[in-house]
Every structure is written in structure tokens, then in C-alpha cells.
Simulated assay, not measured.
Amino acid sequence: MTIEPGSQIPDVTLMERTPDGPAKMSSKEFFDGKRIVIFGVPGAFTPTCSLNHLPGYLENRDALLAKGVDDIAVISVNDHHVMNAWAKATGAEGKIRFLADWDASFANATGLAKDLSAGGLGVRSTRFSMLVENGVVKFVEVEENPGQATVSSASAMLERL
């Protein structure tokens, strides 16, 4: 079952590339005491993720922060090296947090995992966006079609905020 508003974010280990190297963090620690917009993508460097979903959040970063958001993060079932390379390649490094859900533990625990083996990707995250306040989901939007970023887009998030 997909995580719903009012649910606590599950506590799993994520990874992020920092200036000091790769760092593990608990999702509980990441969301604790903050208002965070997080969006999930099936894969770094994939077409819709790189050409539509991520750029929208990068372009609307300041507007989202002006709505009282403490941080914006993208999460994908990729390793931290891939996520770091994607951050650099898109110019989003230092502007959006790039979280690696390398073992799909976050995707599985939230019910947002999707088997994309038919397309050669294996188990990935579905495309989604959510607002999390102090570890509690306030709302979540899941795309019906992984090739689209409409209900989970930055503009849709701005309207919800």
C-alpha cells in the first residue's frame, strides 16, 4: 500500500554525496524537524527525469522555499555516485538534495516501488512528489504514467502549497 497523508516516513538508510564523501543518513534524521518537498524519480539521467521533472524543481526552487519549505530533495533507486554525477550534470548541485535509495528500501517501505524490469531498469521508484513536515506526510501525488511529470511536478507542488 502506498504511503498516505498522516503517515510517518519509514526509517531507512539513505546515502548522499557530501563534500567529505559519501554519507549514510537515516530518513528519520533527514526529515526530523523540517518541512521538506521530496520527489521521486525512476532513474537519474532518464529522459523525463532529466528533461522535465528535475528541471522544474530547479527552476521553481526559490518559489518553493518562499512557501516555507526548508529543503527540496530528489530520491531515486540509484547509487550515490550516480546521484552525485546527476547533480553536477544538471547544475542542481547544492540547490537540491540528491538522495540515493540504492537498495530501494525507501521505495519499498513507502509502497512507491515499481518493477520496471521490462524496460531494463529493475525495481525502481515510481514518479511521485510529497510534502513531509517533521517526518509526517502531509500529501503525496503519484504519477499514473512514469513517462509523465504532471501531478508530481514543481508547478503542481507550488499550487498545493
Rank of each mutant, 00 (worst) to 15 (best):
E4G: 06
I9G: 12
D11H: 15
V12T: 07
R17A: 13
K24S: 12
S26H: 11
S27I: 04
E29G: 07
F30S: 10
R35V: 02
I38A: 01
P42V: 01
G43P: 00
T46C: 01
P47S: 11
T48Y: 03
N52K: 14
L54I: 00
L54V: 00
P55N: 01
N60K: 08
N60P: 04
A63V: 05
A63W: 07
A63G: 06
L65R: 13
A66I: 03
A66V: 00
K67M: 02
A73P: 10
A73M: 08
N78A: 03
D79E: 13
D79T: 13
N84C: 01
A85M: 10
W86A: 02
W86Q: 01
A87G: 11
A92K: 06
A92S: 12
A92Y: 01
I96Y: 06
F98H: 14
A100H: 14
W102N: 06
S105L: 05
A107I: 05
A109F: 00
A113G: 08
A113K: 01
K114R: 11
L116D: 09
G120Y: 00
L121M: 15
L121T: 02
V123W: 06
S125N: 10
T126H: 02
T126E: 12
L131Q: 11
E133Y: 07
N134M: 11
V137H: 05
V151Q: 09
V151Y: 04
V151H: 05
S153I: 15
M157D: 07
L158R: 14
E159S: 15
L161S: 02
